[in-house]
């Protein structure tokens, strides 16, 4: 197991690669194993780095270029580390006409990031999505797995406080 010594003297053990091996083994025999493996690998590492993709490619005997193709095709996958909490603002038609773009503006201002950006403290990543399927609650946004409906821009700081 790869280990390293921190400047504080503590030994750091990284067992995520062993866990990745297990994930690969679990899915390997199934047809279309690549996507579920990438899914769990992203959960494990927070993102799909080059090394993770290479490891998966070689383990499954497919080319790294193809893995990269899949990782970049689906918007769910991310190649860069994302914040602890993912904010997804719906920009579908209903939310849009009910002022979702104002929400995005307020979030950008509050967080100091652009869309797809991650705050410096690694707490939030701001994303926009097309229709979360809750048009009756427009405008809608999600933070992690929590849904917020009829959100007003001025409520944003208060909502974000729940995640401090």
């Amino acid at each position: 197991m790869p280990t390293a010594t921190c400047r504080c003297g503590e030994t750091i053990v990284d067992d995520r690669w062993e866990k990745l091996d297990e994930i690969i083994e679990k899915h390997r025999a199934k047809q279309g194993a690549l996507i579920p493996i990438l899914h769990e690998a992203q959960e494990l590492f927070g993102c799909l780095s080059e090394d993770v993709q290479l490891k998966v490619a070689h383990a499954l005997g497919i080319s790294p270029a193809e893995v990269y193709g899949v990782a970049t095709f689906y918007s769910f996958f991310t190649l860069k580390p994302r914040g602890k909490h993912k904010i997804a603002v719906c920009l579908g038609t209903a939310c849009y006409v009910r002022g979702a773009s104002e929400l995005v503006r307020a979030l950008k201002e509050e967080l100091g990031v652009e869309v797809n950006g991650t705050t410096k403290d690694g707490r939030f990543t701001l994303e926009v999505v097309r229709c979360l399927g809750a048009c009756g609650l427009a405008p809608v946004m999600m933070i992690g797995d929590n849904v917020y409906g009829r959100v007003k821009p001025e409520k944003i700081p208060e909502i974000l406080k729940e995640y401090q």
Binding site: E50, Q53, L54, A57, I62, S63, P64, A65, E66, V67, Y68, G69, T72, F73
Partner: peptide
Amino acid sequence: RDIQGVGAISFAYRGQRTLISPSF
């Protein structure tokens, strides 16, 4: 990929951003 069995290039991204690219 299929005839030479190398797979050095593949499609990446989707829609208007689609491109043919080596890994990463």
